[in-house]
């Protein structure tokens, strides 16, 4: 599924380059950080279209799977993700976090039965969320224009590049046994989508324009993530 995704990504990237050129002159961009708003809005509605199929699957999974199963699945993929999170913690100059992330993988893979139980958190080894886009951000790489991608969602240029690196470092697409790989990719995708369902509900109600609301929340969230939750204040 991710190889699909990568294929889709490169196709989308080609289209993006084409349309971006057109969008540059064809749209009235209101936000200087979002110069390709016209193009992004098209991609946004494409994504909403895909979600018409994906969301009910995620809702079904959310309803049918017992809570411990969902927690176990989330923990299992979280454990795999912790390896790359550790690498990024080190790259961001946070060795203490990095060693803690490695500790999490060791503890959860063994005591936590291949990652199904998050024993490490109970031991005080807190989970982190790092990715290569954040790493680039801490190195001072600017975000660049905002883009909205089908399936993978909002990413500026820096985070799109970061995402490509994240995907290439992801062990799941490299699983040799194809049915296993596809199952893992599929379950992980549905689990991720299901975890976003509560946020969906809030956004549906809170937003005047869903596209704008998600974009502005993305900017704030990424800024905060890069500063590990303590961004310097922005003044108006």
């Amino acid at each position: 599924m991710k190889s699909h995704l990568a294929g889709r990504l490169s196709r989308v990237a080609a289209v993006a380059a084409l349309v971006a050129g057109l969008a540059g002159c064809a749209t009235t961009a209101n936000n200087p950080k979002d110069p390709f708003e016209g193009f992004n809005r098209v991609m946004f509605s494409v994504n909403e279209g895909i979600d018409v199929v994906v969301k009910p699957v995620a809702q079904g999974y959310d309803k049918v799977a017992p809570a411990p199963v969902k927690t176990g699945i989330g923990n299992f993929f979280g454990n795999i993700a912790d390896i790359w999170i550790a690498v990024n913690s080190f790259l961001q100059g946070k060795p203490a976090d990095g060693f803690s992330d490695i500790g999490r993988v060791l503890v959860n893979s063994t005591l936590g039965i291949v990652g199904l139980i998050d024993v490490a958190s109970e031991m005080g080894l807190e989970k982190h969320a790092e990715d290569f886009g954040q790493t680039l951000g801490t190195w001072g790489v600017e975000g660049g224009p905002y883009l909205f991608w089908p399936v993978i969602g909002p990413r500026n240029v820096r985070d799109t590049f970061g995402f490509v690196v994240d995907v290439s470092a992801d062990p799941v697409p490299h699983v040799e046994h194809v049915p296993t790989r596809n199952t893992l990719m599929g379950v992980r995708f549905v689990d991720l989508r299901a975890s976003l369902l509560p946020a969906d509900k809030v956004v549906e109600q809170a937003a005047f324009d869903k596209y704008n609301y998600i974009r502005d929340a993305y900017f704030q969230n990424r800024r905060s993530a890069i500063y590990d939750g303590n961004p310097p204040p922005l003044e108006d």
């Binding site: 209101n30 936000n31 809170a206 005047f208 324009d209 704008n212 609301y213 502005d216 929340a217 704030q220 969230n221 990424r222 800024r223 905060s224 993530a225 939750g229 961004p231 108006d236």
Partner: peptide, 11 residues
């Protein structure tokens, strides 16, 4: 990191 208040600023 997302202010439920200033997220409306641009809109």
């Amino acid at each position: 990191g997302v202010s439920l208040v200033t997220n409306y600023r641009d809109t």
